[in-house]
Design a protein around this nucleic acid. Structure first.
Lengths: 204, 204
DNA sequence: GTGTCTTTTGACTGCATGGCCAAAAATTAG
DNA sequence: CTAATTTTTGGCCATGCAGTCAAAAGACAC
C-alpha cells in the first residue's frame, strides 16, 4: 500500500469491502451521532471484527475523510448539472437550494452524516474539513456576487453574509429529517421563496 | 442535599463555586468544543482538582444542564423586553432576530457553548435538550402564525418551516464568531432584511 | 494437495474519560 | 483552643476508545 492510494491500487474485493465499511459508517453516524460512532459500533453493524476496518483503512481519520469525500462527490454529481442548467441568478439560486435539499431528501443518511462530521470536527479544534465548509460558503458567495454585479440581484446585500445564511438554512435540514412532522419539500419551497425575495430587486 | 436543589439550599460560598465552575465550563466548551470539554480540562482551567466539580454537581449531566439553564435564562432576560416592546409582526420579528444576535455578539462564549451542547447531545441520541430546541422553534412559529392571522405577514408561508429557517440562520452565527472576517452586525442586518422580505406582503 | 498470499479474528496495549472515596485541609462554631 | 462541618485533594476504579498484532482462516494458483 502506498500513501497515495488510488482505487486501482486495490483489488475488487478490497474496494468492495471499503465501500461496505464506508456505508456502514455513514449509517452508524446518522444513527447514533458522530460522537458515538466508534469503530467497534461500525464493525458490529457489519457483523465483522473491528480489526477489519483497521486493515482496510489507515485509521479512523482515513475512514471519516473517505465518507466526506464520497458523499460530497455524489452530492456534487447530483447538484452540479441542475445548477448549471440555469442561466439567471435567481434561477441558479433556486436550483442550488432545491438540488441541495432534494439530495438530502433522497439520501437522508449521507448528508446527515457529513453535516454532523463537519460540525463536530470543526467545533473547537482545527479540522481537516474547515476548508470544506468555508469552501462551500465561498463558492456560493462568489456566485451571488457575480450575479449581483450583473444586476440579477439587489446590489445592497453582502454576498458572504447571504451565503452563510443560505447554507445555514440548508444544513439545518438533515437534523430535522428524523422528525416525521418535518416536510422537507415544503421547507425547500419556503427556503427558495425567502431567499428569492431576499435577494431579488422585485418581490415574488 | 435534596434532589430538588434551590439556590437558597446552598451556602453563598457553594453558590459562588458553582457559578465559577459553570463559567469555566462555558469557556472550555466554547474553546475546545463540547467533545473535548472533559471535567479534567474544566478543572485545570480553574486550577482545582476535578473532584471539586463532582462535589458541587451531581455529575457532568448536571453541570451541562446548569449551563444551558443559566445561559438561556440570561438570553431570555436580554431578549424578552426588546421583543415585547414591539407591537406589529414585522417589528417583533426584527427585534427577535436582532436581540438574538446582539446577545451572541456581547456574550460570544455563552451561546456558542449552548448551541454546541444542544447540537452535540441531540445528534443521534435522545437528549434532555431536544425539547429546548423544538420549544424555541415552536414559540417562534406560534408568533409567526399569530401575526400571519392578523394580516401582518403574507398568508402563504408555513410558520413552522419559516421558524426553522430563522433559527437556523441565528444558530449559525456562534460558530462563525471566531472568524475575524465575520461581521455579526452586518449578518444581523442581512438576516433581518431577508426575513422581512420573506415574510411580509410588500417588499422592503 | 501444497504453498503463497490475502483477509479476518480476537486478544491485547495504552490512553482518556466520568465517577468515587478516604484522608487531608480549610472553615466555622462554641 | 477545640470540636464539628464543609471543602478539597489526589489517587483509584471501571469503561470505552483507537490502534496493534500474532495466529487462524480463507482464497487461489499450480
Amino acid at each position: 500500500m502506498q500513501s497515495k492510494d488510488t482505487d486501482d491500487n486495490r483489488s475488487f474485493v478490497s474496494n468492495a469491502r471499503r465501500a461496505q465499511i464506508v456505508e456502514a459508517a455513514i449509517e452508524t453516524v446518522a444513527d447514533v451521532g458522530y460522537a458515538n460512532a466508534s469503530l467497534a459500533r461500525i464493525a458490529v453493524r457489519l457483523g465483522i471484527s473491528k480489526g477489519v476496518i483497521s486493515y482496510h483503512f489507515s485509521g479512523k481519520d482515513d475512514l471519516i475523510a473517505e465518507i466526506v469525500r464520497q458523499v460530497l462527490q455524489r452530492a456534487r454529481a447530483y447538484m452540479q448539472p441542475r445548477i448549471e442548467a440555469q442561466t439567471t441568478g435567481p434561477e441558479i439560486l433556486r436550483a442550488y437550494i432545491e438540488s441541495n435539499l432534494e439530495f438530502m431528501r433522497d439520501n437522508p443518511n449521507q448528508l446527515s452524516a457529513v453535516v454532523e462530521i463537519v460540525r463536530a470536527t470543526i467545533a473547537g479544534a482545527k479540522s481537516p474539513f474547515t476548508g470544506n465548509r468555508d469552501g462551500a460558503v465561498h463558492i456560493l458567495a462568489e456566485l451571488l456576487a457575480r450575479f449581483q454585479a450583473a444586476g440579477d440581484f439587489r446590489a445592497d446585500f453582502d454576498p458572504n453574509a447571504m451565503a452563510i445564511a443560505i447554507r445555514a438554512v440548508i444544513d439545518a435540514a438533515p437534523g430535522r429529517l428524523a422528525d416525521p412532522a418535518f416536510d422537507i419539500d415544503r421547507y425547500a419551497r419556503e427556503a427558495v421563496t425567502v431567499f428569492h425575495r431576499g435577494t431579488c430587486v422585485t418581490g415574488a
